[in-house]
Amino acid sequence: MMGKSIKELNIGDEASMSRTVTEADVILFGGVSGDFNPAHFDEEYARKTLFKGRIAHGMIAASYATAVLAMKLPGPGSIYLGQEMKFLAPVRFGDTVIAKVEVLEKNEGKNRVILRTYCTNQDGKLILDGKATILPPIK
């Protein structure tokens, strides 16, 4: 299974996925990444922060956007070349994150696409916004 080549991509093409963040996700992400910040793991500590409770790693939401790029648009065979992103709101345990990507630019000569990568929560609040540079698969 291969994703879309640059010739198959059009400006404005979109794809998305959603996932609900669980405590298990945060524990597993901490184990894989080595990020055991108390903002994610210690409720007593986290209550004293500006978020007033534990939050998920921001990179969990970012990884959902990565999954959309890798599995849907452009899809399998794509190579990630770069990413800019801003974290705009926290992801809380139990939030459903909707990760979306949209083709913004294509450069057929260099086989590069730039896609907007963004995530909202179940209330439609923008939690992450950025741009990815991708090398789509060559068919």
Rank of each mutant, 00 (worst) to 15 (best):
5 S>W: 13
5 S>F: 14
6 I>H: 12
6 I>M: 06
7 K>P: 05
8 E>R: 01
8 E>H: 02
11 I>A: 06
11 I>G: 07
11 I>Y: 12
13 D>T: 00
15 A>Q: 10
16 S>Y: 14
18 S>E: 09
19 R>E: 05
19 R>C: 04
20 T>K: 15
23 E>H: 11
23 E>K: 13
24 A>P: 11
25 D>H: 14
26 V>K: 09
26 V>I: 15
27 I>S: 14
29 F>W: 14
33 S>F: 04
34 G>Q: 10
34 G>W: 01
36 F>M: 08
38 P>W: 07
38 P>Y: 03
39 A>E: 02
39 A>H: 13
39 A>L: 15
40 H>K: 06
43 E>I: 00
43 E>T: 00
45 Y>F: 15
46 A>Q: 08
46 A>N: 03
46 A>F: 05
49 T>H: 12
50 L>D: 03
52 K>G: 00
52 K>C: 12
53 G>T: 10
53 G>R: 03
54 R>T: 11
55 I>V: 12
55 I>W: 07
56 A>I: 14
57 H>S: 08
57 H>D: 02
57 H>T: 07
59 M>G: 02
59 M>A: 11
61 A>R: 00
62 A>M: 10
65 A>T: 13
66 T>R: 03
67 A>D: 05
68 V>F: 01
69 L>H: 03
69 L>Y: 00
75 G>P: 02
75 G>E: 04
75 G>Y: 10
75 G>C: 01
76 P>H: 10
77 G>S: 09
77 G>H: 02
78 S>T: 12
79 I>R: 01
80 Y>A: 08
81 L>V: 11
82 G>N: 12
82 G>C: 03
82 G>W: 06
84 E>N: 11
86 K>E: 15
87 F>S: 06
88 L>F: 04
88 L>P: 08
89 A>C: 05
89 A>V: 07
92 R>D: 13
93 F>V: 11
97 V>K: 04
98 I>V: 13
99 A>D: 01
100 K>R: 04
101 V>Q: 06
102 E>Q: 07
105 E>M: 05
105 E>V: 07
105 E>S: 05
106 K>F: 01
107 N>I: 00
108 E>A: 01
111 N>P: 03
112 R>Y: 02
112 R>K: 12
114 I>Y: 13
115 L>V: 10
115 L>E: 09
116 R>M: 14
116 R>S: 14
118 Y>S: 11
119 C>K: 01
121 N>K: 13
123 D>N: 15
126 L>M: 14
128 L>A: 07
129 D>T: 06
130 G>K: 06
132 A>M: 13
134 I>S: 01
136 P>S: 05
136 P>Q: 05
137 P>A: 11
137 P>Y: 04
138 I>R: 15
